[in-house]
């Protein structure tokens, strides 16, 4: 009895110490670290089949052959508003470049609010709505703004979670153009 109890106590102690060691080794490993970056970089972009505010169809085929910057946003989102100047500058730079496209996908907003905001801000790049957040789900977005770069073959080459600067947008474009 004396020995059995000792062995059991020793086994339980060993298990607890082992658990402690394993947990101590995991300190600093944030299990949600994967939430801070897109898992889709390097993978083919999800199929898109959306409608622009003027009713024209925007799908994966129309974007193939171009370096595409896809920006998920909403009009009510403050970080989205903060990155608007960078997006405007980027759009100005590449307005006449047929090899570059900028597409804004409305993640979760009313068409009326978006139309009013687009008009008020003079946004002149393609803005599409995303009924049921289908595209947002396919791109595995966790919020807004989130920006993705797609190369001419439709491969996701870069992604940024959170607001972008002009430099970030150039860097994303560079990844899409293989620079």
């Amino acid at each position: 009895m004396k020995y059995s109890a000792r062995w059991i106590a020793l086994s339980v102690g060993a298990v607890v110490v082992g658990l402690g060691v394993v947990l101590a080794m995991q300190v600093g490993n944030d299990p949600r670290i994967d939430a801070t970056k897109s898992q889709l970089v390097g993978q083919p972009a999800p199929e898109l089949s959306l409608r622009a505010l003027d009713g024209t169809a925007v799908d994966t085929n129309t974007l193939l052959g171009k370096a595409v910057i896809v920006n998920f946003w909403n009009s009510w989102c403050i970080p989205c508003r903060n990155e608007l100047p960078a997006l405007k500058e980027f759009a100005n730079r590449y307005r006449d470049d047929p090899g570059v496209a900028l597409v804004g996908i409305v993640r979760d907003d009313s068409t009326r609010a978006i139309k009013a905001y687009v008009k008020a801000e003079g946004i002149d790049w393609v803005i599409v709505t995303d009924p049921d957040s289908r595209a947002a789900l396919d791109f595995a977005t966790r919020g807004q703004p989130e920006t993705f770069a797609l190369d001419a073959n439709g491969l996701i080459t870069g992604a940024q979670i959170g607001p972008t600067t002009l430099r970030d947008l150039e860097s994303l474009l560079g990844s899409a153009q293989g620079r």
């Binding site: 979760d108 957040s133 947002a136 789900l137």
Partner: peptide, 17 residues
């Protein structure tokens, strides 16, 4: 796109989707 909720309990558009 929310903290501390599962998809079943959340009312966000993402969760609904």
């Amino acid at each position: 796109d929310c903290e501390g909720l599962n998809v079943a309990d959340s009312t966000t558009t993402s969760a609904r989707s």
